[in-house]
Design a protein around this nucleic acid. Structure first.
Lengths: 149, 149
DNA sequence: AGTGAAAAGGATTTAGC
DNA sequence: GCTAAATCCTTTTCACT
C-alpha cells in the first residue's frame, strides 16, 4: 500500500491519457513497459487506481443544465438510504452527506430546466425527503480529475 | 455532429473501461475494430469524447477531506477571473458560477481540516473574494462519470 | 457515408534472468 | 527491475455496399 514518486508519475500520466501505452508511460518515468504494467496492476489491485474512463462533454449527451440540490431529510435517514435514492435517479451525478443545515448535497445534470423540475419532483417523492433547496449552475468553470491533483 | 445509438454504446463501453481494445468494444456493438476506431476518432474530433482518464481513489493521494465552498465576490468579478483563481489553487477540483446568493461554488479536496483552513485562507486572499461559506462533506455517497449517464 | 478484410507496425504479456 | 519472444491490438490501405 506504499505509493512512491514513480507511481505518482504513472498515475498523473494515465490521468492525462488513460489510453497511453505502457511503453510511452515508461519513457516518462524511465522504466520499461513491463515494469510499468506491473506497477499499474499493483495500483489497481490495491484500489489506488479504481479504473479508466472516457471523459465526455456533458452537452453531447443532452446534459446541458446542472444544479446542486440540498436535501433536508427526515430524522432517521441513513446515508445508505440517500445513496440508494441517488442511484435510482439518473440525473444525479454525485451525492454527498454534509455538515450544516442540509443533510446531503446532490449534483444533478439535466437537459433543461423543465427536466430539472421533473427530477426535483422525483426526488421530493422519496419518503425520507422533507424538502429541497436548489442552486442552478450558470457555468461550469473547471473540473479536475483526481488523477491530476 | 450526429450521435447514434452505436456511438452511445461505444461511449458507455469506454466509460466503463477506457483501456478496452477496439476489438472488445466492437464485439459489444457488432462492429469491426477499425469501424470502432473511426467512430472514436470522429467522436474525439467532434469534442464529444474529451479524453480518457484514470479514476483514482482520492484517499490514496492524500485527499481524504472534501468541502463545498461558496464564494461571494466583488461586484465586477468575471467568471474567467474566478476560473483562473480556481486553477491556481490545487485543492479546487471543480468550480461553478451559480444562481442564488453566492456567486460561485468550489469543490475542494484536501488532506485534513487544517489543510482546508489553509486553502480557505488562500482563497480569501484573492482580491475579488469578499467572503466564503463552507460546507464540509461527511461522506461521498456516489459519483457517476458522465459517460455512464 | 460507412463498412469489413488484410497487412504492417506496435503494444501487451508471459517467461527467464 | 530488464530483455526477449509470442500473441494480440492498432492503424492504414484498399475494396465493397
Amino acid at each position: 500500500m506504499q505509493i512512491d514518486a514513480i507511481d505518482r508519475k504513472i498515475i498523473a500520466s494515465l490521468g492525462e491519457d488513460a489510453r497511453r501505452s505502457y511503453a510511452d508511460v515508461g519513457a516518462q518515468v524511465a522504466l520499461s513497459a513491463p515494469a510499468v504494467k506491473r506497477r499499474v496492476d499493483r495500483l489497481r489491485a490495491e484500489g489506488v487506481i479504481t479504473g479508466f474512463t472516457a471523459v465526455i462533454a456533458p452537452a453531447a449527451l443532452g446534459g446541458t443544465t446542472e444544479a446542486f440540490v440540498e436535501l433536508f431529510c427526515a430524522g432517521r435517514t441513513s446515508p445508505a438510504e440517500i445513496r440508494r435514492a441517488a442511484l435510482r435517479h439518473p440525473e444525479v451525478v454525485a451525492a454527498y452527506t454534509v455538515s450544516g443545515d442540509a443533510d446531503a448535497i446532490l449534483h444533478l445534470r439535466v437537459s433543461d430546466i423543465s427536466h430539472l423540475e421533473e427530477a426535483l419532483e422525483g426526488l421530493r417523492a422519496e419518503r425520507f425527503v422533507n424538502s429541497t433547496r436548489s442552486t442552478i449552475v450558470l457555468s461550469m468553470l473547471m473540473e479536475r480529475p483526481a488523477a491530476l491533483t
